[in-house]
Design a protein around this nucleic acid. Sequence first.
DNA 1: TTTGGTGCAAAATTTTTGCAGGCTA
DNA 2: TAGCCTGCAAAAATTTTGCACCAAA
Lengths: 159, 159
Amino acid sequence: MNSKERKKIEEELKDLLREKGLKITQQRLIVLRVLAENRGKHLTAEEIYRETCGILPGIGLATVYRTIQLLTQLELVDRINLDDGFVRYEIGDLEEKSAGHHRHHHLICINCGKIMPFEHDLLDNLECSVTDTTGFIIRDHEVKFYGYCAGCAKKLKLN
Amino acid sequence: MNSKERKKIEEELKDLLREKGLKITQQRLIVLRVLAENRGKHLTAEEIYRETCGILPGIGLATVYRTIQLLTQLELVDRINLDDGFVRYEIGDLEEKSAGHHRHHHLICINCGKIMPFEHDLLDNLECSVTDTTGFIIRDHEVKFYGYCAGCAKKLKLN
DNA sequence: TTTGGTGCAAAATTTTTGCAGGCTA
DNA sequence: TAGCCTGCAAAAATTTTGCACCAAA
C-alpha cells in the first residue's frame, strides 16, 4: 500500500471516529498504519503488537486487542481465520468496498503455507443462485480453498 | 441420523482404528455417537463433553479434546469455525465423501444465528476456474455466507 | 503382557476486563 | 474540565500436556 492510500484510509478512520464521538489517538493511528503497511500479510494480534512496539514502545497488548476490535467494527479491517489456531487481521480495500464487493477470498497452500487472495465473478452467480433457491439474503461471505499452490504442485509433481 | 447410519459410521471408525493399530475404546465410540446424534448442530468441544458425560460420567474433558482431534484427522468429523469465538465440530457425511465431494457449506443468519448447510454445483465450476487461472490445485474448501435466513428476511421486511 | 488410552491437574495460549492514571476534545 | 483511552496486571476461557494408572488386544 502506497503512502497516498495510507493517508486516505487514515482520514477514513479519523472521520469515522469523529462521527461516533470517539477519540483520535496515537495508538489507533499506529495500529491502522501497521495493518496498512502489511497488506496481504494476514497478521495475528501478537504480530501486530510486536510491530506497533517498534513504533511506540510501551503500547499495551490490551490496547492492540481493543483497537483491532474497533477497526473491525468500523469495517476498516477484516478478521480471517485460517484454522491454524490464530485469528488474523487484514486491512480492507477501500476500492473494493466502494464497488460494493465484500471481502476477498483466500487460497491456502497446505504444503508451504502461502496465502494468496483472489477475486472471482463466479461467486456472484453462486450468491444469486443461493438466494433464489433458499431465500437466504447474503450480506457477506468468506471463502477458503485449501490445496497446493502452483509452485508446490510443480515441486510435488501433482500436475 | 438414523441408527443404521450410526452403525455404519461406527464400523468405519473401528476399521480405521484397527488399520492404524489404535485401540477401540468406549470413549471414542461415545464421542462419535454424540456427534452422530447431533448432526447439523455444530457442537463445541464443551457441548460434546457435556453430552458424553450423560452417557459415561467421569469421562475427562482432555479425552474429549484428544478424541475430537483424532476423529478430525481420520476425516470422520469436520472442524467448523463460525467466528463466534468457538471452534465447532460436525460429523461428516459418508455419502458425500464417497461421491468425491468435500465438506459442505454454511449459511449463517446474522439475525437469529441459525446455521443451514447447502451444497452447490456452481462451486465446482468456481474451483475449475480458479485452478485454470492460478494453477492452484484445490483439495478442500470452506465457504460461509453471512446474511439473513428466509424467515428473518421476511420478519425484517428485507425482500 | 504390552502398548496405547484415560483422567486428573497443571500449564500454556489467547483474549478480555477492572482500575487508576493520562490524554483528547 | 469531562469523559474516553491507555497500560498494567489479573482473570477468563479454551486447549494442550505430563504423569500415574487402566484397559484393549
